[in-house]
Design a protein around this nucleic acid. Structure first.
Lengths: 224, 224
DNA sequence: CGAATGTTTGACTGGAGTCAATGAGGGTGG
DNA sequence: CCACCCTCATTGACTCCAGTCAAACATTCG
């Protein structure tokens, strides 16, 4: 964003919110008056099925915009919860309209955000549907690593990943047990390490090969 | 859309395009100068994996907007192909910018379109990841039936569905053989019929129950 | 020290994939 | 008109990946 954009965002901004780990931020079906940008910490987007299973839609990392669906459609299609303590930049939904009217370009940016989310979701859909557990887990680590290092910059082969194996399993549509065993395979092959909330990527290229993906960072800027 | 909106769309519209069955409309990675709205006919959104597997992202029905990602992000994340002969309403991408500037509300509508697509994709993700073949297939028929009858109106329990079992299998991430057997179960239970390109929904409520879903039509209007 | 949470392993089962073959239509050219 | 081919639907046999059940560890916490 340009300095101009930042100024506009500042006017739009209402305040900052700090939530503890485990706090629900947005609920499926809700029409929250607030929208957020994640500044620090990490979280989860998820939905529950009728049978009690949980599907993790995606992980929330710093820089992600939260509540787009509520802001645009009036209702969230999934819930969002803080996994660690999180700092959120808060926007008022009523101001969103004002914000868009101030510059037509704002509306375009909003659409761009939505399109990016859709893009990632399409990629997830492909992975969950068509790959073996080993491929899916490897794919997930590559995507997470690329996403985190793209923003944080620091690229020493390790990332902070404060999630549980249960979360990864639910994200990939795999059982906890099988996810654990699959992670074990990647560990034994010296491709990754995972201890507590630190994940180490020992061989990104090899991991990408296993996950049938590339290490390309996604396009991050609108083209207009 | 209001009459006003339609007028604005008309100015934006470049022309109509008729494509034969099997014609690629938008390709993954491409930056098409044109955007489309499907007027008649049906198609498929899909991606190919490195190993040659195809994942069908969604079916394209009349009323769907095509090329949003290319228009906003500058690159499609998936390909779109006509399954039947299709009539498309064509828009020029360069005009999209002009269109948005004409009324800030336009940008919002664009974001709304993207959010709706994302919403559906999130639902698909949940289904593909966590359900048995029987649940997934039942879910798919319910969603397709609800979507088609919501627009076409005519609701006599049967819909035109010009796709192959292969397409449905790729959409759900199932093998062709297993999809076929699963369809056989639904047929034997008198829940559906499928002959050629006509699918009959004999018992929508029961089907929804099997698919762990509801028969609710999605919200179709922005709230601002 | 128990209680709670999360990771790791093993044994067993079953749903879904793969391979393979048979039908069932629809086109087409001899 | 019919043999041939091609696509798609259907069915059976077999295999295996991943789910489920169950139990043992490892940590943290009150």
């Amino acid at each position: 964003m340009s300095a101009d954009d930042v100024t506009a965002m500042q006017r739009f901004k209402v305040g900052e919110l700090v939530v503890d780990a485990g706090t629900p931020i947005l609920l499926e079906g809700s029409n929250s008056p607030q929208l957020f940008t994640a500044l620090h910490g990490m979280g989860l987007r998820y939905r529950y099925l009728e049978n009690g299973e949980r599907q993790v839609i995606s992980f929330v990392f710093p820089g992600d915009f939260l509540g787009l669906q509520a802001g645009v459609m009036g209702e969230m299609g999934h819930s969002i919860e803080a996994t660690t303590k999180m700092t959120l930049c808060v926007f008022d939904r009523r101001e969103l309209w004002t914000y868009i009217k101030s510059e037509p370009e704002r509306g375009f940016e909003l659409a761009w955000l939505a399109a990016v989310e859709e893009h990632f979701m399409g990629e997830s859909l492909t992975t969950v549907g068509q790959r073996t557990a080993l491929q899916a887990v490897a794919w997930a680590f590559v995507r997470i690593y690329v996403r985190l290092t793209a923003v944080a910059g620091a690229d020493d082969g390790s990332i902070r990943f404060p999630f549980k194996q249960r979360d990864l399993a639910d994200a990939l549509g795999l059982s906890l047990v099988h996810t654990n065993k699959t992670i074990g395979i990647l560990k034994s092959r010296q491709l990754i390490g995972w201890d507590g909330d630190v994940v180490q990527i020992h061989d990104l290229a090899a991991l990408a090969k296993v996950g049938l993906t590339t290490t390309d960072a996604p396009k991050l800027r609108p083209i207009m």
